[in-house]
């Protein structure tokens, strides 16, 4: 039973880390007033480009260096995701296209691109399910033996790859940035009331572009973590990334747009998703029912927030609206 519980908690944290990245990036994006529903697509882009970069590196080098493996995959994933964000920004900020439509399109686009190249990589590697970037995946999953061997605390707190801890750091740094720096204040003003921010001399367009692109880059890390750590350096065209992406969007609401809330929120989502592990004698259909729990919790949170009407818990006031200075 104890082992089962520890396994459940470990699974919750790994699962939570994927959606935490997605949610943190989306929080940064939404704070600028951009509702990017392309999170699943961006996570796809991050996952496939990280995988592709490390695959070609490992393919051409018989003895890959762990550091280079990490660097190429990390940079490729961040750059591809940020490019996805740039595409979204250009469409919604410069051309003022509808944000919902653009985001949904980006999701479809990202999924299509990723599964196309995922299939190609598999073929190059010798057939379906054959791709494996063992060296890179091992680098991502490396733990510090001195710490992970510490019995129960080691298993619970130190048995993960570095990206689990990085996610927490990013969440805390983002919280600090938004609430205790001048740029953070400016960015929040852009998302709340762009006309006011503009009148205060803040460059609304640049803030929106930067927040959306960097936010997308962070969201893409969720896809990278999923391919490299969660499924151990392989590719599966089963649509899991997309469903995790939607869960990340739900987590943004659950966290009431506060990145530190996304830390425990994501682990809670993971716990709820995997809770069936410790419940004995469940059939296949019961498991699927349990996997709905995170969504039910999000609905409950939405109802709860709406009832309390606390202004600080509301989404940024101009979320989803494009801004044009001379519009009245």
């Amino acid at each position: 039973m104890m082992d089962q519980l520890i396994r459940l908690l470990q699974s919750s944290i790994c699962f939570g880390t994927v959606i935490m990245y997605g949610a943190i990036g989306e929080i940064l994006t939404e704070k600028s007033g951009n509702l990017n529903l392309g999170v699943p697509g961006i996570m796809y882009l991050g996952g496939i480009s990280g995988l592709a970069a490390s695959f070609f590196y490992e393919f051409n080098n018989p003895n890959p260096s762990a550091i280079v493996c990490l660097l190429v995959s990390f940079l490729a994933a961040f750059a591809a995701s940020a490019l996805g964000g740039l595409l979204y920004s250009f469409l919604t900020i410069t051309l003022r296209a509808n944000q919902n439509v653009t985001g949904l399109t980006l999701t479809i686009f990202g999924g299509g691109v990723a599964n196309f190249f995922g299939g190609s990589l598999n073929t190059m590697a010798g057939g379906v399910g054959q791709i494996s970037v063992a060296a890179t995946s091992a680098a991502y999953r490396a733990t510090i033996p001195a710490l992970s061997g510490l019995g129960l605390p080691g298993k619970l707190f130190f048995s993960y790859g570095f990206m689990v801890y990085l996610a927490i750091v990013v969440a805390v740094v983002l919280h600090w940035f938004l609430n205790h720096t001048r740029q953070g204040l400016n960015l929040r003003a852009v998302g709340e009331n762009p006309a006011t921010a503009d009148a205060a001399g803040i460059n609304v367009i640049r803030n929106k572009y930067l927040a959306t692109c960097i936010g997308a880059g962070i969201s893409g890390m969720g896809g990278l973590y999923y391919t490299m750590d969660y499924i151990k350096g392989t590719w599966a065209s089963d649509g899991t990334i997309e469903s995790l992406g939607w869960l990340a969007v739900a987590l943004v609401i659950f966290a009431t747009w506060r990145s530190v809330n996304a830390i425990w929120g994501s682990y809670l989502f993971g716990f709820l998703f995997w809770a069936y592990l410790i419940i004995p004698n469940l059939g296949r259909k019961d498991i699927e029912l349990f996997k709905m729990l995170p969504y039910l919790v999000t609905i409950a949170v939405l109802i709860f927030i709406s009832l309390r009407k606390k202004r600080e818990n509301h989404p940024p006031a101009s979320l989803g609206l494009s801004y044009f200075r001379e519009e009245r």
Binding site: R188, N193, A200
Partner: peptide
């Protein structure tokens, strides 16, 4: 200019609204 329709961010405090957009050296 003080506009007829106020350009203020509702969920900010007075001080936050006032320093908004300023580029002063040092931390906030």
């Amino acid at each position: 200019m003080i506009h007829q329709h106020f350009k203020l961010v509702d969920i900010f405090t007075a001080a936050e609204n006032i320093v908004l957009g300023l580029e002063e050296p040092g931390k906030l």
